[in-house]
Amino acid sequence: MSDPQVNYKDYEKTQEPKRPLLKNCIKAFLIGGLICVFGQVISTIYMYFFDFTEQTVGNPTVATLIFITMLLTGFGIYDRIAQFAGAGTAVPVTGFGNAVISAAIEHRTEGFVQGVGGNMFKLAGSVILFGVFSAFIIAFIKTIFSYWSGA
């Protein structure tokens, strides 16, 4: 006599719909690429009209992309784009902006400090922490190599 749990798992596998992996990858690639092209257009506009250089245009471009993402998330548009594109919207910096504002919107009923502020920075805090820590490690390694090479 066979085990009913094993039989059910086998049956479940036969009934599970196949995921269109290649189609999902192509959508993520195209939408993520379009977001990056849009970011490049913003950079070019800042350099052409506002006299930023290639070295200084990064911060305002990222801030603009995050601001636009937060507006689109607030109006529910970014979630529909993310539903279609999947990881294509999560990988660029816009995914970070969406995650931060989504947490803020979700917890707004708990108040501005504990709800919005506290939950919004749960994600942002870890990103900032690992960013600063990674920068420290890379700078430390670079300093050691510079010291050993005599530069």
Score class of each variant (00 low, 15 high):
Gly118Thr: 02
Gly58Arg: 06
Phe38Arg: 04
Gly117Trp: 14
Ile101Lys: 01
Val57Cys: 11
Ala85Val: 13
Arg80Asn: 06
Gln40His: 12
Val100His: 13
Gln83Val: 01
Thr56Val: 02
Gly76His: 03
Gln83His: 05
Thr94Ile: 09
Val62Trp: 05
Met70Phe: 01
Phe38Ser: 14
Gly74Ile: 08
Gln40Pro: 00
Ala90Asn: 13
Gly111Phe: 04
Thr89Ile: 11
Phe112Ile: 15
Val91Gln: 09
Val93Cys: 04
Tyr46Trp: 13
Ala90Ile: 09
His107Lys: 01
Gly39Val: 04
Phe121Gly: 02
Ile45Val: 15
Leu123Ser: 06
Phe49Met: 12
Thr61Ile: 09
Tyr46Leu: 12
Lys122Ser: 06
Arg80Gly: 00
Ala104His: 04
Met120Ala: 15
Gln114Thr: 11
Thr61Gly: 08
Asn119Met: 02
Asn59Phe: 15
Gly111His: 11
Gly86Gln: 04
Thr44Met: 13
Gly58His: 08
Asn98Arg: 10
Thr53Glu: 07
Ala87Glu: 13
Ile45Asp: 04
Leu123Gly: 12
Leu71Arg: 04
Val116Lys: 00
Thr56Leu: 10
Thr61Pro: 04
Phe96Pro: 05
Val41Ser: 04
Ala85Glu: 12
Val62Ile: 14
Thr73Glu: 01
Glu110Phe: 11
Thr44Cys: 11
Tyr46Val: 13
Leu65Ser: 07
Leu71Met: 10
His107Ala: 00
Gly76Phe: 10
Phe96Tyr: 15
His107Pro: 00
Phe84Ala: 09
Val91Ala: 11
Gly33Asp: 09
Leu34Trp: 08
Phe75Cys: 05
Thr44Lys: 14
Arg80Lys: 10
Pro92Lys: 07
Ala85Cys: 10
Cys36Ser: 01
Gly76Val: 01
Gly117Thr: 04
Ile42Cys: 09
Gly97Pro: 07
Phe50Ala: 14
Asn119Ile: 00
Phe75Gly: 06
Ile105Ser: 06
Gly88Ala: 10
Lys122Gln: 03
Gly58Thr: 13
Ile45Lys: 11
Phe84Ile: 07
Lys122Ile: 13
Gly115Glu: 00
Ile66Gly: 06
Gly86Val: 09
Val100Phe: 14
Ser43Trp: 14
Pro92Phe: 10
Glu54Val: 15
Val116Trp: 08
Ala82Tyr: 08
Gly86Tyr: 11
Ile101Val: 12
Gln55Thr: 14
Ile45Tyr: 09
Thr61Lys: 08
Glu106Gln: 12
Met47Cys: 08
Thr56Gly: 09
His107Tyr: 01
Met70Asp: 04
Gln55Asn: 11
Glu106Asp: 13
Gly95Val: 07
Leu72Lys: 03
Phe112Arg: 03
Asn119Thr: 02
Thr109Arg: 01
Gly58Trp: 12
Met70Ser: 06
Gln55Pro: 11
Leu71Asp: 00
Glu110Cys: 03
Ile68Phe: 04
Leu71Asn: 10
Tyr46Arg: 01
Leu34Asn: 01
Gly39Leu: 10
Ala87Tyr: 12
Ala99Gln: 12
Tyr78Asn: 00
Leu34Gly: 02
Ile81Thr: 04
Val116Pro: 03
Gly76Arg: 08
Thr56Cys: 07
Ile66Lys: 05
Gly97Ser: 02
Asp79Ala: 03
Gln114Val: 10
Ala85His: 14
Ala90Val: 06
Ala63Met: 13
